[in-house]
């Protein structure tokens, strides 16, 4: 397994680079696809006063609207009953808004206008609504997004990860710190730009949160692997192995723990996404990529960084132990 991963590493690294570069270009040109948060579409609203509420005909109005939509071939994706409030005091006033939202596919301006007209005339002639004031309207909606917090988030993740990995360096050695830094850097960049490259619809704030989760899970998994690595490298059996072999053997030894932890995190994410809310699933499921990249980097990237660093450090240590005395003095042989 380790050998296969070692051979495949250049290919996988190149693939990561392609995704990250494509993501950077598309991010610069188009930004993220924030359709999950700021959908284009329509709303249909019926604003009514307290009289309708008191007379108990709120449900009739909802039925009227929904029957009209059905007859017009309109399918709504959201329904809300909202309390109208005063713009200054924010205290409830006497009105209520019944709002339906439509995706561009589920409706068109013409059909909505006709549906509004039908509801309006039914309200004007209907006995149930005669004492109430009901205003029916429909609107086109175009969302705006703002991802201003992303830069600060990226700097925060970078500085946070560097400080955490400095601690790892002090406690577990420079090889662990460098491998952790490489893994974190890869995961944050890959996770963030993956969504720009693939155009998967996301909430505007979400990519940087996914990157933060990727960094946090990577730190967690890598420290778990480093704990094991520190113990293993003290073992005399490891001293006869090359740096690459030792790193691969130690990380392979921690696969159960790392995989168990990653599966637990993934399971929690899936459970959170499994509810009835489509929005929640759209927010949570992409977070699985954060966990997947963390596992990938611990098993694939980190060993390939630890090995050469450990090799160089071992060589330096050996040189020090060998008692290197420096260059021969010029003409020393002649003097003899």
């Amino acid at each position: 397994m380790n050998k296969i991963m070692g051979k495949l590493f250049p290919v996988l690294a190149a693939l990561s680079c392609v995704v990250i570069l494509a993501g950077i270009v598309l991010y610069a040109l188009l930004g993220f696809n924030t359709a999950a948060e700021v959908p284009e579409g329509y709303t249909f609203e019926a604003r009514y006063d307290v009289v309708l509420e008191i007379s108990g005909h709120e449900a009739d109005l909802q039925t009227l609207c929904e029957d009209t939509f059905e007859k017009s071939g309109l399918s709504f994706r959201g329904k809300e009953v909202l309390d109208s409030v005063d713009s200054n005091s924010f205290v409830n006033d006497t009105e209520t808004v019944l709002r339906y939202t439509f995706a561009p596919r589920g409706a068109s301006a013409e059909t909505l206008a006709k549906a509004a007209e039908t509801v309006r005339s039914a309200v004007e002639t209907g006995e149930a609504y005669s004492d109430s004031r009901i205003i029916v309207s429909w609107h086109t909606i175009a969302g705006e997004s703002f991802g201003d917090a992303a830069w600060r988030g990226a700097i925060a993740i970078a500085v946070g990860a560097i400080v955490a990995l400095l601690y790892v360096g002090i406690r577990f050695g420079i090889a662990s710190a460098l491998a952790g830094t490489a893994a974190c850097l890869h995961n944050v960049l890959f996770t963030y730009f993956f969504f720009a490259a693939t155009r998967i619809p996301v909430y505007a704030f979400a990519p940087i949160l996914y990157a933060a989760v990727a960094a946090a899970v990577t730190v967690l998994l890598w420290v778990l692997a480093s704990v094991r690595m520190r113990e293993d490298f003290k073992d005399p059996a490891f001293s006869s192995l090359t740096g690459k072999e030792a790193a691969a053997k130690s990380i392979a030894g921690s696969w159960k723990l790392v995989t168990f932890t990653a599966v637990a995190v993934a399971a929690v994410i899936v459970l959170f996404a499994a509810g009835p809310s489509v929005g929640m699933a759209a927010l949570m499921l992409p977070m699985l990529l954060s966990v997947a990249t963390a596992v990938y980097s611990v098993f694939v990237i980190a060993p390939n960084v630890v090995a050469p660093v450990k090799k160089a450090l071992d060589r330096r240590k050996a040189l020090k132990k060998g008692g290197y005395v420096g260059k021969k003095k010029a003409g020393a042989d002649d003097l003899r």
């Binding site: 925060a156 946070g160 955490a164 989760v213 946090a216």
Partner: peptide, 26 residues
């Protein structure tokens, strides 16, 4: 102590720099 210290350092440092969601998460 090592595992928690590494994560706590990451989180508290990120919290002081980041805004909104990332800050709360960290």
């Amino acid at each position: 102590i090592d595992i928690s210290a590494a994560i706590a350092l990451f989180g508290f440092v990120a919290y002081f720099i980041a805004l909104t969601e990332v800050s709360l998460f960290a």
